[in-house]
Nucleic acid binder design. Sequence first.
DNA 1: CCTCAATGCGGAGGATGCCTCCGGTTCTAT
DNA 2: ATAGAACCGGAGGCATCCTCCGCATTGAGG
Lengths: 191, 191
Amino acid sequence: MSAAVDTITVAVQRPHRADARRNFDALLTAARTAFAENGTEASLEDIARRAGVGIGTLYRNFPTRAVLIEAVYIDGAEDLVRAAAEVAGLPPWEALQRWLWRFVEYAATKKVLIEALNRESAMVRSCRDAFYNAGEPLLKRAQAAGEVRADTDIDDVMRLIAGVAGVTFPSAEQRQRVLAMAIDGLRLSRA
Amino acid sequence: MSAAVDTITVAVQRPHRADARRNFDALLTAARTAFAENGTEASLEDIARRAGVGIGTLYRNFPTRAVLIEAVYIDGAEDLVRAAAEVAGLPPWEALQRWLWRFVEYAATKKVLIEALNRESAMVRSCRDAFYNAGEPLLKRAQAAGEVRADTDIDDVMRLIAGVAGVTFPSAEQRQRVLAMAIDGLRLSRA
DNA sequence: CCTCAATGCGGAGGATGCCTCCGGTTCTAT
DNA sequence: ATAGAACCGGAGGCATCCTCCGCATTGAGG
């Protein structure tokens, strides 16, 4: 499991100087908040202001918007990867379901996830690979146990869940219900 | 069915003068193309250029970006509403499924749909109401026939399908497969 | 403690896009 | 043919993205 975590490569280096490190962290925090509120088109000038730094500082740390998005995206990804180990001991279907709901929670805390999933970059692929490495054993186990349809793979599943998790629902209740329906779709086979 | 079509109210008036009507149509066409390529953040100046008109003309016809998005969104909506009548004679599950795949096709031709579904405006509500009026009888019929889970409604279903239809898939094959899984999720009940 | 080089800073300025408004043009009803 | 309502394009103001430069700060080494 530790091996899975290590595969997430880091695109941006956290600076060496203490002041720069503080600014880096402040920018990440501000970006997380701004993206959660306004999506990934949130104004970078606004993010710099929120962090209490100049726009030059933002660009020095994150040369493009995409790099900033990815940095936010990777934040917390390790926790999700580790969560797979936490549920591994449960019965197959239960384990997979629990992990998928963790994935949905992760998605809820950052709107960038859905948009990032559609991006093609080394960093995103690295994270995606890590998620897939974490979740795939759970899926295969549930398939081997005859609890999940055989005609799907981890990429299908992640895209299905991510797509639904990205919808803005009027109520948490409905969100829960519709996501449950999507997850239930994993169970049925046309056989 | 004709009553359902009539409930779609029109937010923008098509102009009276011949030249203005031509420009209006050209703008709609250009917007459809630009949105399909770049999503709803596509440059309005680019759209005006594509249509061969000045930016002032774009704003005169569509006072805000939202109005333009909605105009594109409604385009073709009537066809989808009518499609419900075309499948009504089929067996319950078949009818619903056929219509949902029509919905997916409609979504594929314009990326704006997914984003529009998350917007709150009179026009969007009007279209959504029309879709729901069209699709709901099909859903209820399939539920009455015991072919669809009882714990869902047309709003759930539309959001589920729209969410998945909005994902960018690397292949049409995968898209097909994952959407089929989502639709299969309608069938299962926890009972 | 001091020095100095590497690291890091903010914001002015150029480019682009959104949006408004005004002088000029075109269309159509009479 | 004419008048006036409808319509036009694009300059200009504002916001945001992004770069670059003169100045400031940090921290390692002596």
